[in-house]
Amino acid sequence: MDYPDDLELVSRCREGDIDSFRGLVEKYQQRLYRLIYGIVLNREQARDLAQEAFIKAYRSLGSFRGRSSFYTWIYRIAFNLALDAKRKRSGREMMEYDDTRHCDPVQSPGGDLPRPDRILLGKELRERLLAGLESLSLPQRTAIVLREWEGRSYDEIAGIMKCSRGTVMSRLHYGREKLRELLRPYLSGAE
């Protein structure tokens, strides 16, 4: 994704135009936040980290050379912050859920009627899915988030994660297989 006008905004930011930075923040905050949320699975922490990423970017605008797009550049900042936070957090606790998450039922993909048992199944599925994501290794989960939430190609994921395309393929394969195993009772074809 390339936004030539971002360079113009960056250039104006450097000259002290704070409104241009606001333009960049408003353009990318949602995507950045969602990426971080996918890694840390905690809304509050994701918001703080997204903010930190923008502050870091603002302080470092002088070093932005424009070789990549602004989004790719800030994306990497956010991505590294999220991974660091996740690693630190994983060291402290085995599993923690964000209790501010919505409790809206998620329909079982295989289901078609909003029957009470289906709604319960939806909630269970969501919890199981979160637990599944938590149980993946960080590289597996990151690959899945980049693919499923960001729609990144394998080559792009390889570039972001600094690994080969084959490694991306393997991470997605094993990650999905693990999720499939954990979610088996909720998927089509289940008894």
Partner: peptide, 16 residues
């Protein structure tokens, strides 16, 4: 099932 997991993940993304 991959497709079903993918759909559920997309739903989850919206929860943020």
């Amino acid at each position: 099932q991959y497709r079903e997991i993918s759909r559920a993940l997309v739903e989850l993304a919206g929860e943020g």
